[in-house]
Design a binder for these strands. Structure first.
Length: 278
DNA sequence: CAAAGAACCTGGCGGC
DNA sequence: TGCCGCCAGGTTCTTT
């Protein structure tokens, strides 16, 4: 489900609602979501802790709690974090964990496919994996860093590389396909073979796209909702993702779908040509 | 080592 | 209406 813009929208909205509030009670309905520590300890540690601030890196969201506790959340494909008043909560079979705050707000974690995970870390503990995230596309990416990355890791195809969170973090299938379309790059292009001009165009397309995604409240294709349970609006502005068989905005070609790196890949065969290597 | 495939899950959609 | 296969904003592990 959510990529960088969606997680960032959640972070901003959630922080306004819960910053400074204390978690009074936690219930774990489906323990499979808890990655660390054991559920019993997770609940015991988190109860009566105040929420101090929310951070995001790539697609990970982190609630910083008092006593140097950090609650790390990854929504994977269908996770939804929403916040409701206790008495307006409606039953759902996809509700797996809830956190009741002192304000009578309830932070609810829903997940249709149950792929999402939460980890609760204490002082000195680190998540194996999150520390090998590449620079965050929104906060830390620079053109220089991007070019250096392409030079050192660019042996693979650009679509695969952009999806690799240890390269740069935050992009997923939608925003990768859209940024390659907007910079007119074929997804199978070998990354380090991009011309200098294309590298710049791609970098700028990604930055611009993420900003627009955030401005428009994220992209809701299926499950994404913000903390109020509302859909985003950026899906209406996608040019290629999910548009197989539709006419490209160039007016001449029809959008195609192929499979690359196990992911559905949408592109315009006319606008996104492989660079001629001869 | 790059790439493909499978696994983790549930549900929506189109075709027959 | 029912059944079947395909597809899904992600990540990780195994196989080729």
């Amino acid at each position: 489900m959510p990529e960088l813009p969606e997680v960032e929208v959640i972070r901003r909205e959630m922080e306004l609602l819960v910053k400074g509030k204390t978690i009074r009670e936690v219930e774990v309905i489906f323990p499979g979501i808890i990655g660390y520590p054991e559920t019993e300890k997770f609940v015991q540690l988190i109860e009566n802790k105040r929420i101090e601030k929310l951070f995001r890196q790539g697609k990970y969201l982190a609630f910083h709690l008092q006593d140097d506790l950090r609650l790390i959340v990854h929504l994977r494909m269908t996770g939804v974090l929403a916040c409701f008043k206790k008495d307006s909560l409606v039953p759902s079979k996809h509700l797996h964990i809830w956190f009741l705050l002192e304000s009578d707000d309830v932070i609810c974690y829903f997940d249709q496919r149950k792929f999402g995970r939460m980890w609760l870390l204490q002082t000195g503990e680190e998540l194996t994996g999150i520390d090998c995230l590449g620079p965050d596309w929104w906060n830390d990416a620079t053109l220089e860093l991007f070019k250096e990355g392409l030079a050192s890791r660019g042996k693979t195809r650009i679509k695969t590389l952009l999806l690799d969170q240890s390269f740069f973090s935050g992009l997923g299938n939608i925003y990768v396909d859209e940024s390659l379309y907007r910079s007119r790059i074929h997804p199978a292009t070998i990354a380090r073979e991009l011309s200098e001009g294309k590298k710049l165009e791609l970098y700028q397309s990604i930055k611009e796209l993420l900003q627009k995604g955030i401005e428009h409240g994220g992209t809701s294709i299926r499950n994404y909702r913000n903390v109020y349970g509302e859909t985003g609006r950026f899906q209406n502005r996608l040019k290629v993702y999910g548009r197989k068989g539709e006419r490209c905005s160039c007016g001449e070609h029809v959008i195609q779908r192929m499979v690359m790196g196990g992911r559905g890949t949408y592109y315009c065969p006319g606008c996104q040509k492989l660079e001629d290597i001869f």
